[in-house]
Design a binder for these strands. Structure first.
Lengths: 185, 185
DNA sequence: CAGAGACTATGATGTTCGTCATAGTGACTA
DNA sequence: TAGTCACTATGACGAACATCATAGTCTCTG
């Protein structure tokens, strides 16, 4: 129940980040979402909010990596669809209210919070490397695998933003289609 | 000098949004950047922060539209490069510290601030339509022009986030290359 | 040159935030 | 059973924020 509270707060923070952004993810918000006791915040996260956010970003990072590893597909199109499908679920399950927590932290972490930027950079690199490896296993040569990976990742992040703003899955689906096409040739 | 202060605040807010996000763009921040007098904030923006942010988002929207219209190119690759080049400048000129203000507002405007989301949605649609029209004029058929436009827009937004996080233009340039390729065929 | 309206200047107000101190509870160990 | 350590509970603290009130200054009109 100790690690339970900590894990629950991390999950709650990840969700709050994806819906409300970095500053919308206050301790009050996280406590409200999780029912965690206010008094134990600095017991579990002595580093304060930065530590909580860092853990939440790493948590999301690991989630996606795990999902990618679960698909040792030999097909570049399947790899692409597994990745886009993952994020489509995030949109659908939140009724178009949630996006990517890592991107949210990146755009809100200006100047002072260099440490947070490094965490998001690490996660993005991890995802990019994971995609590149998947495409490599699918038979693409290194240069093409790398180029496809970074493009798919970027387009996906952008598509999440577009569909959230317009509250319409159309943009996301159109991008996902194009990416599948791109992977096919 | 009246409209001057207002315009200066809007530009300052747009810049702050792109560097520090929605909550990092406080009135104090904007006043500091512009040297505008604190007392005239609610004279120029009776609607408060929401009005300032709305105007800043629209300002960025118009900037990009103008830049797109300035290139009545007949070549899909040139259209793509004009758009990506625009955003590359934002990255370079800020030393990888600034991104897209519209995306920043989108990911931070959760739940309550529905009005702001609608403003960002309108700007994104405007950009998407502008790109679609440019590709149309460049000779692409409607379906392909629309699909290319939304993909280029999404990938660009995502690439901005990636390069900001990693503080490395490599991701952005790789994506821009892929998009030019995609437009070429 | 007088008056009005546009603008500036300064700072108060109430809220929310991150942070932390203090006191308490519960379970496990010796 | 006495003591220790992990955790919970409550709320205080200063800082930063959006907002607004009040008073002062400029500038243009009549």
């Amino acid at each position: 129940m100790a690690a339970d509270v900590r894990a629950k707060m991390i999950r709650g923070a990840a969700q709050a980040l994806s819906e409300r952004g970095l500053d919308g993810t206050s301790f009050s918000e996280v406590l409200e979402r999780t029912g965690a006791p206010r008094g134990s915040v600095y017991h579990h996260f002595p580093g304060g909010k930065d530590e909580l956010v860092t853990e939440a970003v790493r948590y999301v990072g690991a989630l996606v990596v795990t999902a990618l590893d679960a698909h040792p597909d030999a097909d570049p199109v399947a790899v692409t669809q597994a990745f886009t499908g993952l994020w489509r679920q995030v949109l659908v399950r939140s009724d178009l209210h949630a996006g990517c927590a890592v991107a949210a932290v990146t755009v809100a972490a200006g100047g002072d919070q260099q440490a947070l930027l490094e965490v998001t950079a690490a996660v993005f690199r991890e995802w990019q490397d994971g995609l590149t490896a998947s495409y490599g296993r699918a038979g693409l040569d290194d240069a093409r695998a790398a180029a496809l990976a970074v493009t798919v990742l970027a387009a996906m992040e952008g598509a999440l933003v577009l569909s959230r703003a317009t509250r319409d899955l159309a943009a996301f689906d159109a991008v996902a289609d194009q990416l599948a096409d791109l992977a096919a040739r």
